[in-house]
Design a protein around this nucleic acid. Sequence first.
DNA 1: ATATATTGAACGAACGATTGTTCATAATAT
DNA 2: ATATTATGAACAATCGTTCGTTCAATATAT
Lengths: 205, 205
Amino acid sequence: MTDDAQKPQGKRERASADRRLKIRDAAMMCFLEYGFHQTGVRDIAARANVSLGNLYNHFPGKHDVLVEIAALEREELAPFVRQLSKTGPAVRQFDKFVASYAKYLSRPENVILTIEISSEAIRKPDLGQLFAENRSHLTSAIADLLRRGRDAQAFDFATDPEDAALMVLELLEGRAYHCVLNETKMRAQLPGLQMFLHAALGVKS
Amino acid sequence: MTDDAQKPQGKRERASADRRLKIRDAAMMCFLEYGFHQTGVRDIAARANVSLGNLYNHFPGKHDVLVEIAALEREELAPFVRQLSKTGPAVRQFDKFVASYAKYLSRPENVILTIEISSEAIRKPDLGQLFAENRSHLTSAIADLLRRGRDAQAFDFATDPEDAALMVLELLEGRAYHCVLNETKMRAQLPGLQMFLHAALGVKS
DNA sequence: ATATATTGAACGAACGATTGTTCATAATAT
DNA sequence: ATATTATGAACAATCGTTCGTTCAATATAT
């Protein structure tokens, strides 16, 4: 009868999960605004309207909150992977991916959080691995598409597809980062980017 | 008679300048090993064999030490700018630049320090500007070379040269960063990178 | 159905360590 | 003698984390 009949959760578990999300989101906003190391655990708790001690009931420590955010990023990347593995004309699909991922990267918060995570990942192996895995899902999906396109002679490039996929991604992210720092529009960069990529991948035009 | 006759410095000024360098280098090592925010001022002073208070005689604060390091990076980039503006066959010159800059980026300390600086630059305008200027010297030098090469029909690309130069740089740095995180050799990536860039810039082969 | 026991979320004071910076004092070069 | 540099103790603030405690929700026994 009650609405929690569908999901086998008690009031308690549900509330707890909500709190976790609230803390995670508050932390995201803080890390975004101040940076990871400039954010205190108290800042997160305050923004989440949660007591300091309670935060530690939901997370072992500050570091783990960032890990949770990195894991969230993985979920946000999943739709792009799915989109890439659809069937269809390779070039058209590639272009759609580039455009949509560029749009995703045009939101500064996505770029800044990625930088924050990746800079922390240098010295924190667990974050590093999570980050690398996130990335590798995307690149292998791109690589598959490139291979398929090359087999169908829609692409013509000599580089190893896996390498090429990495470079496509690095190019996209590099431009996005550049746009954030210089406060320019990512959208304005898209045509040039597309041309550059088409040339690099040998798209017939 | 004395060797400091050439440079009009007293013993004192010279010693002071040396101290400054020692502090700067010690800070570099610390930032490299622990990261900027994980490094305490005391760590820097200790590694430089300098008292805590004395460090503040040479630098207004911790932030300014990082600025000094960013300024050093500018000097390290200058040779590449000079190399780029030499005369000679455009493609050959471009390849030499890519190879030598890739070699520079193959040293992890260069990459990590750049990340450390750029991540701090997001929220510190002065660092951001310094960083952007460093970068723009390089890109405009690359852009000039690309323009020259295209005029001589050694290159064939449709993108705006300034944009193309940025993308070349982002690609190089992106790959370098990737190599640091995954602990792979930058040298192994160079051939694929060269091919990719040649295709993108329409180098006849 | 009612009473009792168990659980774990919520809280904020308290902890010890460390932060970046300042300052009075001592040493030293000019 | 004077001006500059070197020193480390002292400062206030903040750090991430732990603590004992309260209390509401759940599970169990009656």
